[in-house]
Simulated assay, not measured.
Amino acid sequence: MPPQTVRPPLLHAVGIRVPGLTMTVAIALVATVVGRLVPVLGSALPAVVIGLLVALVRKPGSLLAPGITFSSKFLLQLAVVLLGAQLSLSSIGRVGLESLPVMLSSLVVCLLAAWGVGRMLGVVRDLRTLIGVGTAICGASAIAAVAPVIAAAGADVAYAVSTIFLFNILAVALFPLLGHALGMDAHTFGLLAGTAVNDTSSVVAAAGVFGASALGFAVVVKLVRALMIIPVSIGLSVIEARRDAAGQPLTAGRIVRLVPWFLLGFLIVAVVNSLGVLPPPVHDGAVTASVFLIAVALAGIGLSIDVAALRRAGWRPLTLGAILWVLVTATTLAAIALTTR
């Protein structure tokens, strides 16, 4: 009998992930094509939906599970790191103090309402957190960043992404009409769209419908708003640790260790991008890769969704999303009125 060969651990770890990873990448490629044909959709939602439809036809077996898990966890975190390439300190400075009160007021109102209204509606904690940060910060990207911090279930992530997407579509249709009705100029509408619309594709669509001159400022506001991912995620890490620590003191050292590695990576990439040392091809590649990796990760989440859990969630999360969307819009309009006189 010939001696048995043992595969090196690294090769084994890579090999068992290849089948599932191949499937999630294939779904992400299809979702990317859909997103380019229908830009307002983006690639995140189609990736979740396609993954879910595949899982409904045939639930992925044990052969695919390691790669799907790798996609929905590690690649999701890596995507968050690369999102930092969309930000620079100079762009943050250009937005300045004008947008900060507007963004902070809508953020605080949304997160408080997500906690209070979500509890009143009986929405489970993780789901109301995801819908809250998705509405308050930047849609699917914020959900992607927060999901691993709170160890959210795939069904909760999928429901949150779908809910945020629905109100993004409504915003694209209604916000330009609202802006014209209120007599907003391009700069003011850019501030409204960048603060109250979530995913970048929807911000671009809404600002583009209003007028090309609103587009640049709206996108910068939206990207600066994405920075709120960092303090919110760190705060959630602390809350999760206190809940699980059984009364252990929360020292400064523990707080530092609680900061997720991918958020540090996000900040480092943003700083490096600010220094202008990234060649344009590298910068553009990082931005493109972050969008594609989010699609790959959400394809993995779609493939692993517990459909029964989605049914159990019912109408309450959607109602929460609607209430938060209205509150963020109203708060943004009020803050603009108070700060731009």
Results as ranks from 00 to 15, higher is better:
53 L>T: 00
177 L>M: 07
85 A>K: 00
270 A>M: 07
336 I>E: 10
95 V>E: 07
319 T>M: 11
101 P>Q: 00
210 F>H: 14
21 L>D: 01
90 S>L: 00
41 L>Y: 05
159 Y>N: 04
5 T>S: 01
244 D>G: 08
21 L>N: 04
338 L>A: 02
227 L>E: 00
253 G>Q: 07
61 G>N: 06
200 T>G: 09
78 L>I: 05
72 S>K: 14
28 A>E: 07
187 H>Q: 14
105 S>T: 12
44 A>I: 07
310 L>N: 03
94 R>G: 09
258 L>A: 03
150 I>E: 05
207 A>E: 06
333 L>S: 15
90 S>R: 07
79 A>S: 11
335 A>M: 04
53 L>Q: 08
208 G>T: 12
204 V>T: 15
267 L>A: 13
248 Q>L: 05
184 M>L: 11
229 I>V: 10
289 A>W: 12
187 H>E: 15
324 L>S: 14
10 L>K: 12
258 L>H: 12
118 G>S: 02
244 D>V: 01
39 P>I: 04
337 A>F: 07
199 D>H: 09
179 G>I: 13
287 V>W: 12
96 G>E: 03
51 G>H: 13
274 S>M: 07
111 L>T: 04
250 L>N: 07
284 D>I: 06
124 V>L: 06
145 A>E: 00
52 L>S: 05
144 A>F: 00
101 P>K: 06
215 L>R: 11
47 A>P: 00
319 T>S: 14
93 G>R: 01
182 L>Y: 11
257 R>Q: 10
113 A>K: 05
236 L>D: 03
95 V>N: 01
198 N>T: 15
175 F>P: 01
39 P>D: 03
264 L>E: 13
207 A>H: 13
220 V>S: 15
167 F>S: 10
221 V>W: 14
323 I>C: 01
239 I>M: 02
186 A>Q: 10
97 L>A: 14
181 A>C: 02
200 T>E: 00
239 I>L: 15
60 P>V: 06
220 V>M: 09
120 M>D: 12
335 A>H: 01
201 S>P: 03
183 G>D: 09
71 S>L: 15
142 A>I: 03
280 P>G: 10
221 V>G: 06
74 F>Y: 13
33 V>M: 09
181 A>D: 05
39 P>V: 01
200 T>N: 02
276 G>I: 11
18 V>N: 13
75 L>T: 10
151 A>D: 15
225 R>S: 08
332 T>V: 08
12 H>M: 13
167 F>T: 05
53 L>I: 00
254 R>C: 08
174 L>S: 14
144 A>M: 12
48 V>R: 05
262 F>Y: 11
196 A>Y: 09
99 S>W: 12
213 S>D: 14
264 L>W: 05
266 F>P: 15
71 S>P: 02
189 F>W: 08
166 L>A: 12
60 P>E: 03
141 S>T: 08
67 G>H: 12
219 V>F: 02
82 L>C: 04
218 A>D: 11
279 P>A: 05
179 G>T: 15
95 V>T: 13
75 L>A: 15
68 I>Y: 01
220 V>R: 09
272 V>I: 02
89 L>S: 15
134 G>E: 04
138 C>F: 01
231 P>S: 01
173 A>M: 09
253 G>A: 14
165 F>L: 06
279 P>D: 08
289 A>L: 13
276 G>P: 05
328 V>C: 04
124 V>C: 07
280 P>W: 13
236 L>N: 03
58 R>N: 10
206 A>W: 10
25 V>P: 14
